[in-house]
């Protein structure tokens, strides 16, 4: 749906005129977070987190549920006051330039909750005004058209489906043409088509509209497909930050091999050039670490050695890493419960 109605030709409305003109377009670092912490009574939700998001980045913010993603995003939006650390957006301290900064930020935080007793058009109009811009009904309708809701503009939001609410939430986040867009789990509750639409929209906003986007998710695959840079956090702490290309480096592929005769296969591998790649042998099979390019040669080698392969699976180390964190935490959660 979204892909069929890209935000082309959306230059027609007047962007909000920021009085202090603090936002400079050649600014490199749009978000700069230093030693950010948030303590909720017993729980340290965010722990000395530092990261930066550059202009026109699609920045993936990855972590499982409860890792501190939402708390961080809420701190970026001044919903939550940090216990410690600083946040700079567009090069200015967030707390001292809150108003000017927030004029340039659009966000969808968790569920896109809106006024159910108002129509889609009324909702959009209210939030446009609150963001400091005045749009004519026609301009608002154009906005709704872009997210495919023009037909339902006059329906009460309570009659909308989850996907429609999500799209309206996006329209609300974008209505004042912000430079920075924060999306907290934007694909939650969407069907596969909805997820694809959202992905396309994010890419379009970044490539065509030159928006800086921070998108959080608990799904690695989602981030991998849209982000150019990413951060993984766990229990409030930064685990890894970098460009997606770097983090998904081909050298870091884990190959899981299943054969009819595990002991013989292990002996063959240990005597070959691949012995250094061997990392683990257990009930699930034999694990090796090698570059993506090496995988075809390795499979040929196994055939030549007449190893009867029943299964071979190559996955990214990052994914492996992420899965480990997730499962480890799930164990903890299960234990707690």
């Amino acid at each position: 749906m979204l892909s069929s109605s890209p935000f082309r030709g959306r230059r027609g409305f007047t962007p909000y005129l920021c009085p202090a003109v603090i936002i400079q377009h050649n600014m490199n670092s749009i978000i700069k977070v230093s030693h950010l912490s948030k303590q909720f009574k017993e729980l340290k939700a965010v722990d000395a987190l530092s990261f930066s998001v550059n202009e026109v980045d699609v920045y993936g913010f990855l972590g499982q549920n409860g890792a501190g993603k939402s708390t961080t995003i809420r701190m970026l939006l001044t919903l939550i006051a940090p216990t410690d650390g600083t946040i700079e957006l567009f090069g200015y301290n967030l707390l001292s330039h809150r108003k000017e900064i927030l004029q340039q930020v659009g966000a969808v935080i968790e569920r896109p909750d809106l006024y159910k007793y108002l129509t889609g058009l009324e909702n959009l109009s209210i939030f446009a005004k609150m963001s400091g811009i005045k749009l004519s009904k026609q301009q608002l309708m154009e906005q709704l058209e872009l997210v495919g809701l023009a037909q339902r503009a006059s329906s009460k939001v309570r009659t909308y489906s989850q996907g429609m609410k999500q799209r309206l939430g996006l329209a609300v986040a974008l209505v004042h043409d912000p430079k920075l867009i924060l999306l907290d789990e934007p694909t939650n509750g969407l069907d596969p088509q909805g997820i694809a639409d959202m992905r396309n929209l994010i890419l379009m906003l970044s490539r065509e509209r030159k928006k800086t986007i921070l998108v959080s998710s608990h799904l690695l695959s989602e981030i991998e497909q849209i982000a150019n840079r990413m951060l993984i956090i766990d229990r409030g702490k930064k685990l890894v930050e970098g460009s997606v290309d770097e983090l998904f480096h081909p050298d870091e592929t884990i190959v899981l091999l299943e054969t009819t005769d595990k002991i013989r296969t292990e002996a063959i591998i240990r005597q070959s050039n691949y012995s250094n790649a061997l990392i683990n042998v257990d009930a699930s099979g034999i694990e090796l670490k090698m570059s993506k390019e090496q995988v075809p040669a390795f499979t040929r080698f196994l055939i030549e050695q007449q190893v009867e392969v029943t299964g071979i699976n190559a996955r990214h180390t990052l994914e492996d890493y992420f899965l480990k964190i997730t499962t480890a935490n799930q164990h903890v959660e299960a234990y707690k419960n």
């Binding site: 000017e100 004029q103 935080i109």
Partner: peptide
């Protein structure tokens, strides 16, 4: 309760 408070508070109004 409705979930709109967070949206309101992120708008550029004190």
């Amino acid at each position: 309760n409705m979930g709109t408070l967070r949206l309101l508070v992120t708008k550029p109004q004190s």
